[in-house]
Amino acid sequence: MAGLELLSDQGFRLDGRRPHELRKIECRMGVFAQADGSAYIEQGNTKVLAAVYGPHEMRGSKSRGLHHKVLINCQYSMATFSTGERKRRPRGDRKSQEMTLHLKQTFEAAIMTQLYPRSQIDIFVEVLQADGGNYSTCVNAATLALVDAGIPLKDYVCACTTGFVNDTPMVDISFVEESLGGPQLTVAVLPKSEQIVLLEMASRLHVDYLNKVLKTAVKGCKDVYVILDEVVRNHVAQIASSVGSE
C-alpha cells in the first residue's frame, strides 16, 4: 500500500516509535471496590479492565472442582464499541473463547494453584478499546489485578506482541501494524526466570528468524515488567502509608 510504511528508512514506525520501544503504558490498581482485585491498563490506545474474584467457594457444579488445586475461571469480553466495526457478540464467539482459553492456561502456570484446592478464582477481563495487542494487554491487566487481590503468584506474567518487518522485529504492535499483515508473535513470560508461559504465532516466519524475534519479544516483556513492578510498589507504598498513619 503506497504511503503506509511500517518501518521508514530512518527506522521510525507509523506512530514515530523505534522498533524496540513499547507504547505508553498507564495503569491503576484497585479501581473497583466490589472485586477482590482490579486493575485498569492503557497500552497506547488499547484500554483494558481486569477484575479478579477469589479464591472463593466453587460456584455452579461442585463436580468441576479439583481436589488438589484451584479452578481458574476466565472470561474475555470485548465491549461492542471497542473495535472499529461494532462487535455483535461481546463474548461467546470463537475468538473470545480462544482468548479465554489462552488466559486460563497462562494463569494456571503462574498462580500457585496448589494452595487453594476445591476453590475457584474468577478472572474477568473487559476490553474497552482495542488498538492491537489485546491479548498482551489483557495478560498484563490480569497480572496486576491478581497482585491487587493478594493471590500468590510464582512471578509476574508479562506479555507482548511482536511483529517482523524488513528483517526488524517490532515490539508492541498497534492495530494498524497488525492488520497490514506480516508475522506476529505473542509471547507471555515469567520475567525473572525468562520462562515462556505462552507462545503463539499464526503466520509464516522463517525458522532462521525465530530466535531473533523471540529474543526481542522477551526483552519487550521484561520492559513491561519494569513498568508493572513500579506501579505495584507505588500502590503498595500508598496503601501502607494510609494504613500506617491511622
Binding site: 473497583f32 484500554k47 465491549a79 461492542t80 464499541f81 471497542s82 461494532r86 474497552l128
Partner: peptide, 26 residues
C-alpha cells in the same frame, strides 16, 4: 469522549457505581 473507536462515549461514576457507554452507528 474517552473511547476513540466509538462515535460518542461517556463514563459516569456515581458513588462507586461505574458505567461506560459507547455509541456506534451502522
Amino acid at each position: 469522549g474517552s473511547i476513540g473507536t466509538a462515535y460518542g462515549s461517556a463514563l459516569v461514576r456515581r458513588g462507586k457505581t461505574t458505567i461506560v457507554c459507547g455509541v456506534k452507528g451502522e
